[in-house]
Write a protein that binds this DNA or RNA. Structure first.
Lengths: 102, 102
DNA sequence: GGTCATGTTCTATATCTGTAGAACATAGCA
DNA sequence: TGCTATGTTCTACAGATATAGAACATGACC
């Protein structure tokens, strides 16, 4: 009955250490890097070999840390970086991190 | 007999996610911020209310992540940020983080 | 309705993390 | 040789984390 709920925190409620933690896992860092092209990606596209449940877990952590936004669209969900918002909250941070996530 | 050993990794061996992890804990982020004045601080100065063993643990994680350097000097140890080296490895990263660690 | 595709939630588990007391090590000094 | 100061290592433990299978939910399509 209820729409799928991908609530994400207001950007001003995000703490720096949360963002750093979300990006401190190699898998999640790779996800963020894949999203750095500015496009929306589906969870399935990002997953690759990773099991769906594991992927869902990582996306939840990224979302709750304010790093990504998830938007339901039909069967799939569209994940994107909250780049502009994060840059307003922590200017230069995301760019500095993504620049070095080879 | 053996000198106290505070081995720290070569800067080129440091991975981005390790640095982010080291700084993803509020206590360690506060330590890094305290070191941001460029001075050497003793572990005791940085500790404040924190028990010595806890402090030693956090300093070890920061050191092994390449974020700090520890130098024994007499009874105490001098801890400092590896700012220049980190900036060479990950240009702009540390500055962007420290800028927002209020 | 039935079926398939895409994800989420539930559950379990092995490992990691933060915390901190206790014991030990090192350095300076009387 | 004590004695004190400064940290590290040992040990324990509660809670968090990464992983992933299984069940469930949702949406599209026949």
């Amino acid at each position: 009955m209820s729409e799928r709920d991908f609530t994400q925190p207001a950007i001003d409620a995000v703490a720096l250490h949360q963002v750093l933690f979300a990006l401190s896992d190699p898998t999640r860092l790779a996800i963020a890097r894949a999203l750095a092209d500015g496009e929306e990606h589906s969870a399935g596209d990002l997953a690759g070999e990773i099991p769906k449940s594991t992927m869902s877990h990582h996306l939840k952590i990224l979302r709750e840390a304010g790093v990504t936004a998830t938007r339901p669209e039909g069967m799939r969900c569209r994940v994107s970086l909250r780049r502009a918002e994060l840059n307003r909250r922590f200017p230069g941070l995301l760019a500095a991190i993504l620049k070095h996530a080879e």
